[in-house]
Design a protein around this nucleic acid. Structure first.
Length: 127
DNA sequence: CGCTTGACCGGAA
DNA sequence: ATTCCGGCCAAGC
């Protein structure tokens, strides 16, 4: 497949890394989510930005500095994108307390920002 | 130089 | 639920 890159790629990547660094321990974000939080670079058609930016975020993550918690960025299906190293990513997330069911995490529960975890339905404590 | 190859996503079939 | 499709640049070999 063939796809465009952002103008000023390096600066775009840095914006991605800055956002990724804000994801707390035990939480995840999606590529598209990070892309949405970065405004389309000047000269990029909004429609085109919407189409390609999630991939750009993926490209940025592939080249991220060591201080970025790269393991917390996953795809919009709640899965780890296939590649060599995917298994290591899963281990790191599990070590943060994240549970995988059928190779997928519950985004409602772990996606950041958000509540952080879904309270179990609890019966009112009766006296 | 000319290939090849990419951490994605949403809508349609 | 699953597969297919469009989106059309730049780094590395």
């Amino acid at each position: 497949m063939q796809y465009p890159s952002p103008p000023n790629q390096q600066r775009y990547y840095e914006q991605v890394w800055d956002l990724a660094r804000q994801v707390p321990y035990g939480r995840v974000v999606t590529y598209g989510q990070i892309a949405q939080r970065i405004s389309a670079p000047a000269g990029v058609d909004p429609q085109e930005y919407k189409a390609w930016s999630p991939r750009w975020v993926g490209d940025a993550m592939a080249a991220c500095p060591d201080d970025v918690p790269w393991q917390r960025v996953i795809n919009a299906q709640g899965k780890i994108s296939a590649r060599p190293g995917a298994q290591r990513q899963r281990r790191l997330l599990e070590a943060e307390g994240i549970v995988f069911v059928n190779d997928k995490v519950d985004l409602k529960r772990y996606q950041w920002p958000g509540p952080g975890h879904v309270e179990e339905p609890r019966q009112a404590t009766l006296f």
